[in-house]
């Protein structure tokens, strides 16, 4: 069961990655596309908690770092999504079985998107890869947050339902 669970989850992340690279650039605002992989990681964090979400964040991040057309220093998205998975998982309400409210999900996605894109951008600044000014970073981060929040009502309920169904004992 648990290997099936991870296989389906990784398949979800791969699907998100392909859509992000091949479909959403046609709808991109100022070149910015929604972070679908980040949404999957956040959904996992809300359903499965910080530890598993951090592991999934690492997997998703490595995929984003290595799959074409990526050309940045590998490990940057991995780091960003590990942080996102862990932080979003800690935000999850403690009474495990209670479903998070819509507002809580929205807020978590907005915060995660901001943190994720910012961590990625800051590692870029530190490594000089590529050389971009802070003035250029900010609008990109903000557009990414708006994109992710807009897609939340469309994608998150479905994602969370799929991930919940994969939990042993619930299926």
């Amino acid at each position: 069961m648990s290997s099936l669970k991870w296989a389906v989850t990784v398949a979800l992340v791969s699907l998100a990655l392909v859509l992000q690279v091949s479909f959403f650039p046609h709808l991109a605002v100022h070149g910015v596309v929604p972070d679908l992989c980040l949404l999957v990681v956040v959904a996992a964090a809300l359903v499965r908690g910080p530890e598993q979400a951090a592991v999934l964040g690492f997997v998703a991040g490595v995929l984003l770092d290595l799959a074409p057309p990526a050309d940045h220093v590998a490990g940057r998205w991995a780091l960003a999504l590990v942080v996102v998975g862990y932080v979003a998982g800690r935000v999850r309400p403690d009474g495990t079985d209670t479903r998070p409210t819509a507002t809580a999900v929205m807020t978590t996605v907005a915060a995660s998107s901001f943190v994720g894109t910012s961590v990625y951008a800051i590692t870029g600044l530190l490594l000089q890869d590529p050389v971009v000014s802070v003035a250029d970073l900010l609008p990109v981060v903000l557009i990414a947050v708006v994109w992710d929040v807009l897609l939340t009502p469309l994608l998150m309920p479905g994602l969370m339902r799929v991930l919940t169904a994969l939990e042993p004992g619930r299926a």
């Binding site: 992000q20 690279v21 091949s22 959403f24 650039p25 991109a28 100022h30 070149g31 910015v32 596309v33 972070d35 074409p68 057309p69 990526a70 050309d71 940045h72 894109t117 990625y120 951008a121 870029g124 590529p130 971009v132 250029d136 970073l137 990109v140 557009i143 990414a144």
Partner: peptide
């Protein structure tokens, strides 16, 4: 062109 790098990556690459 089959894949376009997002602006979030701050680099301009395509597949």
């Amino acid at each position: 062109v089959i894949g376009i790098g997002a602006s979030q990556t701050f680099s301009r690459t395509v597949t």
